[in-house]
Design a protein around this nucleic acid. Structure first.
Lengths: 258, 258
DNA sequence: TTCTGTGAAATTATTCACAGCG
DNA sequence: CGCTGTGAATAATTTCACAGAA
């Protein structure tokens, strides 16, 4: 468990449910687009469509922030942009460090949307001495020996880990020791952090595996038989003797008939 | 939901809750690590710790798959690896295309974990003619004119979109028209897809914004005043006159006193 | 009349706690 | 005994549906 004992949901801040918090950026993006098109007001229905949620959910979400709409009219775009930005803490500037400047780290450094709203790449850090000084996205890479100093000098509280899996936990520990309290982890590892540190994870292969699950289900729906037989055929139940390992599809009854 | 009208949860397949499905890859990774260390069995407690969840949840999750454990002992690592792999559809091979070979697309193509388990990068596609033929991660980039043919020739059902935001929806439409039914979207856009197509989204700036929210909350907890004043100061409520706009922090009353 | 804001109901997810198998 | 599997209890989230402001 990333956090030790479940203390407080660690999430229900000011009463805004975590699920709502996770959608605020979505609304904000849709609103920003409207703002750029100089659209003055928007209804919950329209905004919900733009954000890909349903309007009841959106209204409920907004109700946690306050009563920012006008009945019969909708929401003032600019005003709502500001309110959500403030709620998300984007009216201030967050210096961020990226640790691990490989393919992915470099891509992140170059990612425009990164810097766009409230976030600023304060430093790029890599363990490879050969990288040191080399500019990536216009920012010179610094060696990880100086990690602590970089964090402190820049007042960084958000760190992005894009190292290989093996390096992630040590890097995480150093970041946390140096004062980082929020971590975005791209390495395929479960990070252990002390209480009070937030970790969010972005994991490509997990997302693909979830898609594969649903994909398989779809396939099994139309063609009930697709038994491939190519799996590790010799796998047997440890305790029990044999029983039928069923094919990969949908609604077939038993899997382990005792 | 990216899908228009909510039809069917699109998610509750074979009765396995979506939240459980989302954790199976986590368990699988932890189990694979154990397997590589030749650990024969593992208790729910140990495995849960390795996966970063609590053991009751893990047991409940596994109970949806069947009774794969042995009371008093634990779970057979190899057997469970196989069962979860099969459940996730990873005993078969999923050809994947990546569309948009910029920084991120290239990083994805190079990402090892991608190919590692059940997934194979069947093709890289980019709209830039200058990219065509250039190998990335050992795979020659193909031009997007041939997208449909590539999908069909390779029997691709999973597509990864790593294009700029503006190109994402058109690319998505073409992928879907060509037969792709699962999409992993890295572009910061809400994709609209027909019913039956699954979309998962990976969005760096959304993750950062969620972290910023919690970060701000932490800051507000110790120092109630951090009023920056740098926000769009001139923003006023559209309809109403004043009323109490509540402030950004925890439980402290007002910060935006009209 | 239109569209927000929100109680209440429905659904989904998590956690508890313990019966019972090995 | 130890540890799984699971009903039952609790919590979180989503959806419904409608009162009421503009």
């Amino acid at each position: 468990m990333a956090t030790g004992r479940t203390h407080r949901p660690a999430t229900r801040s000011r009463g805004i449910p975590e699920a709502t918090v996770a959608r605020l950026p979505l609304y904000l993006r849709a609103l920003t687009a409207l703002s750029e098109r100089s659209v003055p007001t928007v209804s919950s229905e329209e905004l919900a469509a733009a954000a890909g949620v349903n309007s009841a959910k959106l209204r409920k979400d907004f109700s946690y922030l306050g009563s920012y709409g006008t009945r019969g009219v909708g929401y003032d775009v600019e005003y709502l942009v500001y309110q959500i930005s403030r709620e998300l803490g984007l009216t201030q500037d967050w210096p961020v460090v990226i640790v691990g400047i490989g393919n992915l780290g470099a891509a992140l450094a170059n990612y425009g949307g990164f810097a766009s709203r409230g976030f600023r790449v304060a430093a790029l850090i890599d363990a490879d001495p050969a990288m040191a000084g080399k500019p990536v996205a216009g920012i010179p890479v610094q060696h990880s020996d100086d990690l602590e100093k970089i964090i402190q000098d820049n007042g960084v509280s958000i760190g992005v880990i894009a190292t290989p899996a093996g390096a992630a936990q040590p890097v995480c520990d150093r970041l946390v020791a140096a004062g980082v309290t929020s971590i975005l982890n791209f390495a395929p590892t479960v990070l252990t952090v002390p209480d009070g540190v937030d970790v969010r994870k972005v994991d490509l292969s997990i997302e693909l595996q979830i898609l594969a699950f649903h994909e398989q289900r779809k396939a099994g729906e139309e063609a009930a038989a697709h038994t491939d037989g190519s799996g590790p055929a010799a796998v047997t139940r440890p305790g029990s003797d044999d029983s039928a390992d069923q094919g990969p599809d949908g609604d077939v009854p038993a899997v382990m008939p005792a």
